[in-house]
Design a protein around this nucleic acid. Sequence first.
DNA 1: GGTCTTTTTGCCATTTTATTGCATTTTTAC
DNA 2: GTAAAAATGCAATAAAATGGCAAAAAGACC
Lengths: 141, 141
Amino acid sequence: MNDPDFPRRIRDAGGRVTAARVAVLRCLAATEEPLTPDEVLERLAQTAGPVPDRVTIYRAIEWLAAHGLVRQLATVGRAARYEAVEDRETHAHFQCRGCGQTRCLPAPPPPLPPLPIGYVAERVELVIHGLCAACRAGERR
Amino acid sequence: MNDPDFPRRIRDAGGRVTAARVAVLRCLAATEEPLTPDEVLERLAQTAGPVPDRVTIYRAIEWLAAHGLVRQLATVGRAARYEAVEDRETHAHFQCRGCGQTRCLPAPPPPLPPLPIGYVAERVELVIHGLCAACRAGERR
DNA sequence: GGTCTTTTTGCCATTTTATTGCATTTTTAC
DNA sequence: GTAAAAATGCAATAAAATGGCAAAAAGACC
Ligand SMILES: [Mn+2]
Ligand SMILES: [Mn+2]
Ligand SMILES: [Zn+2]
Ligand SMILES: [Zn+2]
């Protein structure tokens, strides 16, 4: 955990430093698991200070994603999930088909398969589908 | 392409053989790229015969997925995407951040990272994010 | 500090995608 | 063919995301 100077990161990305952007970025950076926009809102609501509107959360996330401070994960659920981009190592994500939980897993970077001509890869994502411990216990056997 | 006896596959899965299930499964099996429920509906609409209701498509897909004949992909787009489960080799998926296109790529099965205690993996998915040839050409430089 | 310009925000309306309830129809077992 | 069980169509509803626009806030300059 190096310097989490969120206002600086936002300014360096060429945007205005607003309460909503800082709060959303801090929220995502402070969390273990990737969050949906609504989950971000819930958490901000439990914090001190004014709560941004839901639409503002969407727009803050959109801006942060467009400027590389946050990234959207590929998911099977209905809601999009985002995580702060850290300069830590590559990792994978586990998605439980029972409860929909998504969590980060340490994992080596997977190999990049050859792409069709003209295609360019920007990111490789590894998703493990399965059942979490709780959901597995819940499934009668 | 071995025997695509869709009614049989559905019956073997323990379900009733209905026109909608057969049509949806055939549609997904006949396609190169994973489709959204609406795309399935569009394609069925262009085929001969009665067109199932949108809700029926959803329910057919849901049933097929629950019984392993179809699988939902992890995506960044808003709509869910599905593909028929073939017994062919593993493959990855490319997702264009420009147009949202999702296509299958031949790729070796990625290594399974270690999971937390009690977690069980059922499937590993590799997603390549980037730009397709068309979208790359479209981006001014 | 104050003033100006540009960007962002809040609120409301709307869109897109998916789900639920229920009467009717279809499938299957006998 | 008949009856039981399951699937379907249709309308209503829910969930997630987006668009328009006036008000508010941020940054640049003084
Ligand atoms: Mn992660
Ligand atoms: Mn595929
Ligand atoms: Zn779970
Ligand atoms: Zn594209």
